[in-house]
Design a protein around this nucleic acid. Structure first.
Length: 151
DNA sequence: GCCAACGTTGGC
DNA sequence: GCCAACGTTGGC
Protein backbone atom coordinates (compact mmCIF):
# COMPACT_ATOMS: atom_id res chain seq x y z
CA UNK A 1 0.00 0.00 0.00
CA UNK A 2 1.40 3.34 -1.08
CA UNK A 3 0.37 6.89 -0.24
CA UNK A 4 0.17 9.89 -2.55
CA UNK A 5 -0.76 13.52 -2.80
CA UNK A 6 -2.75 14.81 -5.75
CA UNK A 7 -3.26 18.48 -6.50
CA UNK A 8 -6.31 20.00 -8.05
CA UNK A 9 -7.53 23.54 -8.48
CA UNK A 10 -10.88 23.64 -6.68
CA UNK A 11 -12.26 26.08 -9.26
CA UNK A 12 -11.75 23.30 -11.80
CA UNK A 13 -12.32 20.16 -9.73
CA UNK A 14 -12.63 20.11 -5.94
CA UNK A 15 -13.02 17.42 -3.29
CA UNK A 16 -16.70 18.39 -3.21
CA UNK A 17 -16.90 17.63 -6.92
CA UNK A 18 -15.29 14.25 -6.34
CA UNK A 19 -17.76 13.57 -3.54
CA UNK A 20 -20.59 14.31 -5.95
CA UNK A 21 -19.38 12.21 -8.89
CA UNK A 22 -17.80 9.55 -6.60
CA UNK A 23 -15.16 8.64 -9.17
CA UNK A 24 -13.11 10.61 -11.65
CA UNK A 25 -10.49 9.86 -14.35
CA UNK A 26 -7.44 11.96 -13.45
CA UNK A 27 -7.01 13.36 -16.94
CA UNK A 28 -4.81 16.20 -18.09
CA UNK A 29 -1.55 15.29 -16.36
CA UNK A 30 1.18 16.29 -18.83
CA UNK A 31 4.29 15.88 -16.76
CA UNK A 32 6.35 12.73 -17.17
CA UNK A 33 7.23 12.30 -13.52
CA UNK A 34 3.60 12.61 -12.44
CA UNK A 35 2.56 10.29 -15.27
CA UNK A 36 5.09 7.69 -14.17
CA UNK A 37 3.59 7.63 -10.70
CA UNK A 38 0.17 6.79 -12.16
CA UNK A 39 1.38 4.53 -14.92
CA UNK A 40 4.01 2.58 -13.02
CA UNK A 41 3.72 2.98 -9.26
CA UNK A 42 0.08 3.30 -8.22
CA UNK A 43 -1.94 0.31 -7.14
CA UNK A 44 -5.68 0.01 -6.87
CA UNK A 45 -6.55 0.81 -3.25
CA UNK A 46 -3.72 3.26 -2.61
CA UNK A 47 -4.79 6.38 -0.72
CA UNK A 48 -4.11 9.97 -1.75
CA UNK A 49 -4.26 13.30 0.04
CA UNK A 50 -6.44 15.64 -2.00
CA UNK A 51 -4.81 19.06 -2.14
CA UNK A 52 -6.47 22.26 -3.30
CA UNK A 53 -3.94 24.39 -5.17
CA UNK A 54 -4.38 27.93 -6.44
CA UNK A 55 -7.03 28.37 -3.77
CA UNK A 56 -7.66 30.83 -0.97
CA UNK A 57 -6.24 29.41 1.10
CA UNK A 58 -4.44 26.47 -0.51
CA UNK A 59 -4.49 23.31 1.59
CA UNK A 60 -5.53 19.74 2.14
CA UNK A 61 -9.21 19.05 1.62
CA UNK A 62 -9.67 15.30 2.02
CA UNK A 63 -8.68 11.84 0.87
CA UNK A 64 -9.15 9.93 -2.39
CA UNK A 65 -8.41 6.36 -3.40
CA UNK A 66 -6.87 4.85 -6.52
CA UNK A 67 -9.82 3.13 -8.17
CA UNK A 68 -8.49 1.71 -11.44
CA UNK A 69 -5.52 0.25 -13.22
CA UNK A 70 -3.71 2.75 -15.43
CA UNK A 71 -5.14 3.35 -18.90
CA UNK A 72 -4.44 5.88 -21.67
CA UNK A 73 -5.79 9.38 -21.04
CA UNK A 74 -8.43 9.81 -23.78
CA UNK A 75 -8.02 13.60 -23.86
CA UNK A 76 -4.61 13.19 -25.55
CA UNK A 77 -6.38 12.15 -28.78
CA UNK A 78 -9.15 14.72 -28.67
CA UNK A 79 -8.23 17.67 -30.91
CA UNK A 80 -10.85 19.76 -29.13
CA UNK A 81 -9.24 19.18 -25.76
CA UNK A 82 -6.70 21.54 -24.25
CA UNK A 83 -4.76 18.38 -23.37
CA UNK A 84 -4.55 17.17 -26.99
CA UNK A 85 -1.11 15.81 -27.90
CA UNK A 86 -0.59 15.34 -31.62
CA UNK A 87 2.54 13.27 -31.02
CA UNK A 88 0.72 10.56 -29.11
CA UNK A 89 -0.56 7.52 -31.01
CA UNK A 90 -3.00 4.79 -30.05
CA UNK A 91 -0.28 2.22 -30.67
CA UNK A 92 2.00 4.01 -28.25
CA UNK A 93 0.05 6.26 -25.89
CA UNK A 94 2.16 8.86 -24.17
CA UNK A 95 -0.16 9.84 -21.29
CA UNK A 96 -1.70 7.46 -18.80
CA UNK A 97 -4.05 7.99 -15.90
CA UNK A 98 -5.94 6.22 -13.15
CA UNK A 99 -9.40 6.85 -11.73
CA UNK A 100 -9.70 8.25 -8.22
CA UNK A 101 -12.68 7.58 -5.99
CA UNK A 102 -13.95 9.70 -3.12
CA UNK A 103 -12.84 8.58 0.31
CA UNK A 104 -13.42 11.46 2.70
CA UNK A 105 -13.76 15.20 2.97
CA UNK A 106 -12.15 16.83 5.99
CA UNK A 107 -14.64 18.77 8.18
CA UNK A 108 -12.48 21.78 7.42
CA UNK A 109 -9.65 22.40 5.03
CA UNK A 110 -6.16 22.24 6.51
CA UNK A 111 -4.38 25.29 5.13
CA UNK A 112 -0.87 25.08 3.76
CA UNK A 113 0.54 27.36 6.46
CA UNK A 114 -0.85 25.00 9.13
CA UNK A 115 0.96 22.13 7.43
CA UNK A 116 4.19 24.11 7.42
CA UNK A 117 3.94 24.54 11.20
CA UNK A 118 3.95 20.79 11.77
CA UNK A 119 7.34 19.41 12.77
CA UNK A 120 6.01 15.94 12.05
CA UNK A 121 5.52 16.80 8.39
CA UNK A 122 9.11 17.81 7.86
CA UNK A 123 10.47 16.42 4.60
CA UNK A 124 7.16 16.21 2.77
CA UNK A 125 7.68 16.82 -0.93
CA UNK A 126 4.75 19.23 -1.00
CA UNK A 127 6.42 21.47 1.58
CA UNK A 128 9.77 21.60 -0.16
CA UNK A 129 10.65 24.77 -1.95
CA UNK A 130 9.72 24.97 -5.58
CA UNK A 131 7.73 21.75 -5.76
CA UNK A 132 5.27 22.07 -8.60
CA UNK A 133 4.57 18.41 -9.19
CA UNK A 134 0.86 17.69 -9.41
CA UNK A 135 1.31 14.18 -7.99
CA UNK A 136 3.83 13.28 -5.31
CA UNK A 137 4.48 10.24 -3.14
CA UNK A 138 3.77 10.68 0.58
CA UNK A 139 5.29 8.74 3.45
CA UNK A 140 2.85 6.75 5.58
CA UNK A 141 3.79 8.67 8.74
CA UNK A 142 3.04 11.97 6.98
CA UNK A 143 -0.20 10.63 5.55
CA UNK A 144 -1.33 9.37 8.95
CA UNK A 145 -0.47 12.65 10.62
CA UNK A 146 -2.46 14.69 8.10
CA UNK A 147 -5.48 12.41 8.44
CA UNK A 148 -5.25 12.88 12.21
CA UNK A 149 -5.13 16.65 11.73
CA UNK A 150 -8.21 16.42 9.54
CA UNK A 151 -10.38 14.94 12.27
C1' DG B 1 -0.13 40.98 -10.53
C1' DC B 2 4.53 39.50 -9.23
C1' DC B 3 8.03 36.38 -9.42
C1' DA B 4 10.83 32.16 -8.06
C1' DA B 5 11.27 27.66 -9.50
C1' DC B 6 11.58 24.55 -12.87
C1' DG B 7 10.11 21.95 -17.17
C1' DT B 8 10.28 22.15 -22.22
C1' DT B 9 11.75 23.67 -26.69
C1' DG B 10 14.75 24.43 -30.30
C1' DG B 11 18.99 26.44 -32.39
C1' DC B 12 23.55 25.31 -32.72
C1' DG C 1 24.29 17.42 -25.77
C1' DC C 2 24.39 22.26 -24.24
C1' DC C 3 21.91 26.09 -22.86
C1' DA C 4 19.17 30.41 -23.64
C1' DA C 5 14.57 31.56 -24.21
C1' DC C 6 10.20 30.78 -23.10
C1' DG C 7 6.04 28.90 -20.76
C1' DT C 8 3.75 27.19 -16.62
C1' DT C 9 2.89 26.51 -11.76
C1' DG C 10 1.36 28.24 -7.73
C1' DG C 11 2.19 30.81 -3.35
C1' DC C 12 2.03 35.32 -1.89
Amino acid sequence: MKYWLIKSEPDVFSIQDLKKVKREPWSGVRNYQARNYMWRDMQVGDLAIFYHSNAKPPGVAGVARVASEPYPDPTQWDPASEYFDEKSTEQKPRWWLVDFSFEKEFPQLIPLDKLREQAKLEGMVLLQKGTRLSITPVEKKHFDHIVKMGK
